[in-house]
Amino acid sequence: MISEDLRERRLALIQEHMDTEVTHDFDLTLETFHGHPHYEIVPTGEVYDGAEEVMRYYRTTREAFPDQRHDNVRTHVADESIIVEFDLLGTNLGEFYGLPPTGKSFRVPVIAVFSFEEDKIVNERVYFDAASLVTQIGRGELLALVGQQR
């Protein structure tokens, strides 16, 4: 079992990670990782490994959804990870998978599993209903991409 101090440091780091994603302070977001950022987007099979790839992921998704944010955040702490449940919201105001913006908004439930090495993140694995997201923003034609690695 982890100490209360380590638990609190990890929770504070998750809060910083999520806050800086919303404010687009991505250099600070990258600092929450243990030297080598790693993201896994489960519904699309996309994996972003290293600072350059993760920064590209941040920029691409925030160009498509500049107002992307979290609501109803709940955390569950385990010894090696923190599981965060939340609603992800945003509006498609920029290019998304090569398609022009629709101006439509989405709200989907998400589970993000943050794995740790001491008090730094080593991986974020994200689960969400991609079909609901693309349908809500009026891009049902993207359903064929769901589950395919890009």
Rank of each mutant, 00 (worst) to 15 (best):
I41N: 08
V42F: 02
V42M: 05
G45S: 08
G45R: 08
E46D: 15
V47L: 06
V47C: 01
Y48S: 04
D49Y: 11
G50C: 09
G50N: 13
G50K: 08
A51P: 12
A51R: 15
E52C: 12
V54M: 05
V54R: 00
M55R: 15
Y57H: 11
Y57M: 14
Y58L: 02
T60P: 04
T60A: 15
T60H: 12
T61C: 08
T61E: 12
T61A: 09
T61Q: 14
T61H: 12
R62D: 12
E63G: 09
E63H: 15
A64N: 09
A64Q: 00
F65L: 03
P66K: 01
P66H: 10
Q68I: 09
Q68T: 12
H70P: 05
H70G: 11
D71E: 14
D71K: 12
D71P: 05
D71C: 07
N72H: 14
N72E: 14
V73W: 00
R74D: 11
H76C: 11
V77P: 07
A78R: 13
A78E: 14
D79S: 12
D79E: 15
E80P: 02
E80V: 11
S81N: 12
S81M: 14
I82R: 07
I83P: 07
V84H: 02
V84Q: 06
E85V: 01
F86T: 04
D87E: 03
D87M: 02
L89P: 04
L89E: 01
N92L: 04
N92K: 03
L93V: 06
G94S: 09
G94E: 07
E95V: 11
F96R: 01
F96M: 09
